[in-house]
Design a protein around this nucleic acid. Structure first.
Lengths: 146, 146
DNA sequence: GTATACTCTACTATTATAATAGAGATTATC
DNA sequence: GATAATCTCTATTATAATAGTAGAGTATAC
C-alpha cells in the first residue's frame, strides 16, 4: 500500500467536507486554501471523487462540493482504494492473479496476504465520522463549522 | 508498502540461498534459471545484497553466492526494507519527517502509523528459516539440497 | 593461460506521479 | 439577459522510479 499525494489530498478533502456536512456546499478555492492543495490538482481529484459518488457538486453561484453520503457511511479504506488502488503490497495476492507459476506454493504470497488483511482490518473499520471525532478531540482549533 | 519486482526477486533469491545454506556457493545462472529472474538484473540485486552483508560471494571457478548469515538470523522485514525502502505507506509517519505543518494533530498520520506497526509485527518476526520450513511443508517438490 | 564466475558503470524504455493550462458549461442574481 | 462565480473537461509537461539491457573489467581454480 502506498499513499500518494493525490490520495492524501483526497482523504483530507473528504474529512473537510465531512466537517461541513449538512451546511451546504464548499467551494474548491476554500478547500484548496485550507488544506494547502494546488487548486487545479484538487479540481481533478474532486471530479474523480464525484464520479465515484463520494461527493456531489453544484455549479454556478452558491455552488461547490459536498459529501454525497453521511460521513459515517464512508470508510478510509474505500477512498484509499479508489484513489491509490489496491492495498496489497504486491499484485500476486489478488485471487484473480495468474502471473505466478506456483502461486499456490509460494510462501511469500500468503505473507503478503496477511499484511493486506491486517491493513484492511484497520482502514475498513474507520469512517470519516470517526476521523472527525478524533480530529475534534486532538485539535482544538479544528474548524468544523461553516 | 510496495514490493517491487526487485524486492520480490531479492526475497526469492535469499530463500533459495537459505535452502542451500551450508552447501557451498550457488552460481547466478542457477538462481536465475530456477527463479526465473533476468540474469543481468539478478547480478545487480546480488551486488546490493552483498553490500548489505546479506550474502557473500566468491569469484572464479567454484565461485558463487551464499548467505552471509544463518537463515534464522535474517528477517523478511530486513530484506524488504533494504531493497524496497520504508514500509510506511506515507512518508509523514516517520519521526524525522518535517514536511507536514500539523503532523501532531493529523488523524491520518496516526492511522498510517498503526498500519505500519501491524505490517512490521508480521514481517519483522519471520525469518528465512521459518520461510524455508513453510515452503518445505507446502511444496513437496521443493529442492532444498544442492 | 584459459574458462568460469563475479564486479562495475552506463544506458534505455516504459510508466506513474504531480502537477499546470486553458477553454467550456452551468447557475444565481441584478 | 448580462455578468460573475463556480464547476467541467481535455491536453500537456516535468520529474522520478522501475525494470531491465549492455559490455568491459577483475579474480580464481585448474
Amino acid at each position: 500500500m502506498k499513499i500518494t499525494y493525490k490520495g492524501d489530498y483526497a482523504l483530507k478533502t473528504i474529512l473537510d467536507l465531512a466537517a461541513h456536512f449538512g451546511n451546504g456546499p464548499v467551494v474548491i478555492n476554500d478547500l484548496s486554501r485550507r488544506l494547502d492543495i494546488p487548486t487545479k490538482f484538487l479540481e481533478q481529484i474532486l471530479l474523480d471523487l464525484k464520479r465515484a459518488h463520494f461527493v456531489e457538486s453544484k455549479r454556478g453561484k452558491i455552488g461547490g462540493y459536498s459529501l454525497a453520503r453521511h460521513p459515517g457511511q464512508i470508510t478510509l479504506g474505500e477512498v484509499t482504494r479508489f484513489i491509490d488502488g489496491p492495498i496489497e503490497p504486491i499484485a500476486c495476492v489478488d485471487k484473480r492473479y495468474s502471473g505466478c507459476h506456483d502461486a499456490g506454493a509460494c510462501v511469500f504470497r500468503s505473507i503478503w496476504g496477511q499484511v493486506s488483511s491486517s491493513t484492511a482490518k484497520i482502514i475498513d473499520n474507520i469512517t470519516f465520522e470517526d476521523l472527525l471525532k478524533r480530529s475534534k478531540r486532538t485539535n482544538k482549533s479544528f474548524n468544523y463549522q461553516i
